[in-house]
Amino acid sequence: MEYKLIKLEKIQEFINSLIATGKQVLAPKQKKEKVFFSLIHSFEEIAMDYIQTAFSAKSAVFPKCEELYTFEKNGKETILNNPQAPENDTIVFGMRPCDGAAFDYLATFFLKENPDYHFKMRYDNTIFVGLTCSSGDEFCFCSSVGISPSDTRGSDLMLTKTENGYYVEIITEKGKKLVEQFANFFEQIEQIDKTKYVANIQKRFDSSALKEKISGAFDWERWEETSLPCFGCGTCAFSCPTCTCFDIQDEANLLGGTRYRIWDTCALGIFTKHASGHNPREKQSERWRNRILHKFLYTDEQFGILSCVGCGRCIRNCPAELSIIEQVNAITEG
């Protein structure tokens, strides 16, 4: 692996040069009380010292609303058109390592079997620049799901803030190319020990105890009781970096239109409701159970990966303050 240093005063120039060369830079930006990944137009807009964004940057590769294709009506014929690929590279700048791990999961989910054209189109065009966590809060629990606050998984470049500037680990070819393209901002440096710059994220639950309990947890008798405060807003899923469910919807007029895929969530009752009115997951507690088991059991069975990366967003965003940490602990305790 190669290592570089980008001095504090250079990072600004680096970002602004990325923007000047036409790259779409998605970076953390303050909006009212929260920080969101947003398209930025200059370095000043970036909130570098944040614990966690309200939403992950997954919209870079899986937007809230995306064209699957367009159709034009021409008499009795219909002409179908593929969506246009984005012209410029997107740079996701300053994402946390938990989000990097989430992108790794998303790539497995979307590309391993029945590879997804739309995801690939964006994923191939996106460069992921991770940022080591120097602090966390009581909702961070990456270390409980096998991810570290300096994890390089899913990142093309990994930045760690030091006294001298940002220490850069070049993880992939894609990352290397970007550094080469903007070589004048980077200095050569030897590998350093990152430990003292990395936050200590406490373990919030015992993952091996969870693994033991979770396979039989469908019939656990406390699902209803523990999920009573959930009123089914779905914010946990929408803000989750690994939630991938979507709906397909058309918007059209007499001449043609677009078939979209849009974010959807198993938290909503209508998600599984049949045309007949029958609903396999009638109650919120069943939907809540599905979410928890999907994160900690079903994707493990499917891909051998947990689909919870411990980012803590579902806890911070929940209006009823339900906590996935408390939930998991309740399951492991029986």
Partner: peptide, 24 residues
């Protein structure tokens, strides 16, 4: 099985019954 489906290729999540996707 006839769960509600959208994508048909194991992506949209609607038809999932545990780790089993009715569509694939």
């Amino acid at each position: 099985l006839e769960n509600r489906m959208k994508c048909g290729i194991g992506k949209c999540g609607h038809c999932a019954v545990g780790p089993y996707y009715v569509c694939k």
